[in-house]
Design a protein around this nucleic acid. Structure first.
Lengths: 212, 212, 212, 212
DNA sequence: TATGAATGAGCATTCATTCAT
DNA sequence: CATGAATGAATGCTCATTCAT
């Protein structure tokens, strides 16, 4: 009863590999692998064999968890959207003035892009081959920013002539495009400087302008 | 004007009148169809059969003009890039102050997007699944804008603290993203208002700011 | 009755009461499920997953009882053949004249078809995709009938010009086909009338015919 | 104008292999191969690779003519049904009394079975794995025979107590089953004798019986 | 024994490319 | 040049079987 075999379940850091946990682990591996491969090759270009190999499982395993390629893609998008949105939501809780909050948001976005580069591109790319799921993610982020700008109008820091949706879309496009470029070779610009540029461009685009 | 290449249409015996023009016409149809289908489905997702059907020719015809799918894609991108860049170059020749020139540029971009919606998205999308050819187009446009901003630094209308490449990329991203959204349903915003927003966002992002 | 195989259920220490019965129960469920699914989809078309679900057990369970799909199929056929043949043998024991015995045989066949519709079709179908095991069942039934017809020749009720095997095969085909059709919708004909038709057709096909 | 290359289209026995004819030829090869393989393995058991190899074409060719395996199966059944029914219809035109007509019908069925053994089994098998298309064929044949029996009632050669549909189904079942068995090894019975048995069994089953 | 996730060979289907007409 | 049926390698997906729990 007090043998070592009882100790294991008590160790929280040891991941007592129960049936359910293993299943969940496999799903996670598949989603991670899917994010990587879909980001690299797109939905049409991604090969199931590549995803399975990347996940370290057999091809058939994918189909124990998702009915088809599209379903895995949807799951990847869903999971990515949740991560991005919760990250943005968290940045709002930062202490400090508006500027600090804004910088925290940019910092969070950059961190996300650094951590999940491929997923970041997958989630936020628009244009060719776009997919309803990609629209949804961008729309959600835009909606979040529109809310902030509405507050900016009330608080007086946003330019009164702003069309909120247009402004939010421009911001999102600008931030994504710069990050997309930066991700090609992060050495080309210091991380802090990147955040500075993003914040500056964002601020100048929407904030009120003192009369000359 | 009287060179040998003019002789052919004159030949009465078989009436292959304008063999060359017919060929050119077929190529144009293929490029247009390719732009539409590549824009809709991406390079990997586009089907030769769809392109041929869209062009109104047989599948085999594509191969009498291009060696393979990638070659047609390259041709589509090359043609699109040429159109975009020449359009931007033309807008620089507009008479009037900097503001008029800027507005003309935006007008030209909007016109291009309206005319070649699918091609526009294909050319300017970046992110997931993008292709070296897509990067090249964006890079060329960015380079053009960097030149203008350099002039702006000399002329004093550009903010001195600007990182030119970053600023240009943010601009391009903002403009593309807003247009991409607008193209989904152009009825959602008046064309002139769209150009106003684009111009304003662009100006505020890079122009000098009076001290408060 | 008091042999060692009775001892097991008496063991109190772990209460594996009726281990053997549980096992047998699982096998029965598998055979019943197999009959249903094989009859519906054929050997090639039947899915192990479907059989397991129909039996209410996990897929792996099937493999603790049978080495593979073919073995379960064989078991289904073997069990079905035993049931059919013992039923026919029993009908011979019925009291009464030849007509009563024949009617009892038809009644038994109809009862079997009603009770095990799917299994009935599985056992007696021939033609496309049939399997040596299916031939075997039909052959066994035919052999039984040939014996009866031989007796009929001796007793004088069978037509002398009959080729026994041909006649038996015709009978089996006729009975199976009519029942197969009836099983689609038993409401289309009264059960007794069905037996009347079967018996009449059988009798007229083989019995002696008075000279006109 | 009068060169040998003009002669070819004139030769009706030479099958001037025009584009359309080749296409039709390929379809015929596919249907024939499909009949053989489906008959051997069933719908579920048939492998596209086997059908293609049997037809002498590449696997992809099948899909230029039929959307999928089921469609080819349907075409095979449709073509087979047409052949069987037209054969039966033709046998009705035979000169001579009812007996001659009946014998001609049986002869036609045996010929069909000999010629298209596999297709015959595919078309007429019922029971396990049956398919709506198989039902349809059998139903059509039964309907044809019911018509004849109705005539028999009017003309007085059919027993008045007959249930026409039941009788027709019994006949069809008997004939098919005997032929199915005979096809396993046609050497086991002389062809004429087979037709005799079939005709006799058929006649005794339905014809009026003189009072003893 | 029972379970059901994992496996991977096997199969149906797709689609870029070829080529006889 | 244009055509579109034919090709067959590549790919998505299935499913009988295994095995760790």
């Amino acid at each position: 009863m007090t043998g070592p075999e009882m100790a294991e379940p008590e160790m929280p850091h040891m991941a007592p590999r129960r049936r359910k946990n293993q299943t969940e682990e496999t799903r996670l591996k598949l989603v991670a692998a899917g994010a990587a491969v879909f980001a690299r090759q797109g939905l049409a270009g991604a090969r199931i064999a590549d995803i399975a190999k990347e996940a370290g499982v057999a091809m058939g395993t994918l189909y124990t968890h998702y009915p088809d390629k599209d379903a895995l893609f949807a799951e990847v998008m869903r999971a990515g959207q949740a991560m991005v949105l919760s990250g943005l939501a968290a940045s709002r809780q930062v202490d400090g003035g508006r500027e600090a909050v804004d910088r925290a948001a940019m910092d969070g976005v950059v961190t996300f892009a650094e951590t999940y580069g491929a997923l970041f591109r997958l989630l936020l790319s628009r244009g060719a081959t776009d997919n309803p799921l990609q629209r949804e993610v961008v729309d959600a982020i835009v909606a979040l920013r529109v809310e902030e700008l509405e507050q900016g109008l009330k608080d007086g820091w946003a330019r009164a002539d702003l069309d909120l949706e247009s402004a939010a879309r421009c911001e999102v496009g600008a931030v994504f495009h710069l990050l997309d470029w930066w991700l090609d070779d992060p050495a080309k610009m210091d991380r802090d400087m990147l955040i500075d540029h993003l914040s500056a461009f964002r601020r100048f685009g929407v904030e009120g302008r003192a009369a000359p």
